[in-house]
Design a protein around this nucleic acid. Sequence first.
DNA 1: GTCTATAAACAGATAGAC
DNA 2: GTCTATCTGTTTATAGAC
Lengths: 190, 190
Amino acid sequence: MTTSERLIQSTRELLWERGYVGTSPKAILERAGAGQGSMYHHFKGKPDLALAAIRRTAEEMRATAEGVLGGPGTPYERIVGYLRRERDVLRGCPIGRLTMDPDVIASDELRAPVDETLDWLRERLAGIVEEGQRRGEFAPGLDGEEIAAAIVATVQGGYVLARASGLPSAFDAGVRGLLSLLAPPTAPTA
Amino acid sequence: MTTSERLIQSTRELLWERGYVGTSPKAILERAGAGQGSMYHHFKGKPDLALAAIRRTAEEMRATAEGVLGGPGTPYERIVGYLRRERDVLRGCPIGRLTMDPDVIASDELRAPVDETLDWLRERLAGIVEEGQRRGEFAPGLDGEEIAAAIVATVQGGYVLARASGLPSAFDAGVRGLLSLLAPPTAPTA
DNA sequence: GTCTATAAACAGATAGAC
DNA sequence: GTCTATCTGTTTATAGAC
């Protein structure tokens, strides 16, 4: 792996663990096994390196989600698959957590990939919900965009509950609650 | 206001704006208009002051929530009232955001008030959901604890969506989505 | 109680040798 | 391209004057 690549990977890890404000160039360099010079040769500075790292994480997250959402199954099944997919719950969402970082939110450049990723996810889910409505799986009165927003919010908020309590099961409880409300009448959970 | 009190208030503001990692004693002292000596006289250090600030914020948040949840109205109405109450959405949740702070999560002492507050809220909502079930407002098959977890998660995740996009409406969309699923059959939204 | 002085370590970046 | 100085300011805390 190239030095540039090692720097990006180390930054991704640290942004996930400690956020932007909590991550120092020194920590990145130590983890990457590189010196100051390498970082400032390949990147303009901490914000530039962080941007590259966030973009990379955003790409991967999108690909992972698409793997489930674009897979086989009915719309409801794909949504369940997305909500139930294996997650390192206590580590939180590497993209969503950046919204609590003051320096990320203060920078339109750093915020952009975060916004685009969550927006894409919401739109992708909205389309699936609407597909489910056309198939008679979900009530026709529902608003696809709003249901999608509720789904994404439940996931992001689930991380909050899990990290607060230290229990991954807190995440699952929220997901089960949402799914029990969303469950197609033809296949009730109870 | 006493110096000790000004220190706590300044810390509360900064923890909300920038989190624990992003808040320095220096910034607290400047905002409180106090010197180093005052802080180390009244508190053992940054973690001790932060703990006092977090506890205070937790108390207030609980009181605010109880004001709506313990107020008049049917269970469904009180839940709607809680979800729709005025919020500084783009500022995020002063308690929930701390779960993304590595130093808060790493400390059982700092995490405790965060955990207790969200846990209290979840239990309070669970009781209200169960009350609604007894009144025939909600489907009897639902699990109160899980629905409560979904409600809290939707709020916490709503902040994430709003801050990512810079639009408070993103929060509202998620809330509307959840409420449309939760709406009692006797009073549909559509 | 509150202030300033001092201090060791860190943050973030630049300069220039190799 | 990568490295090691070097540099300015910050972080977190202690010491001691007032």
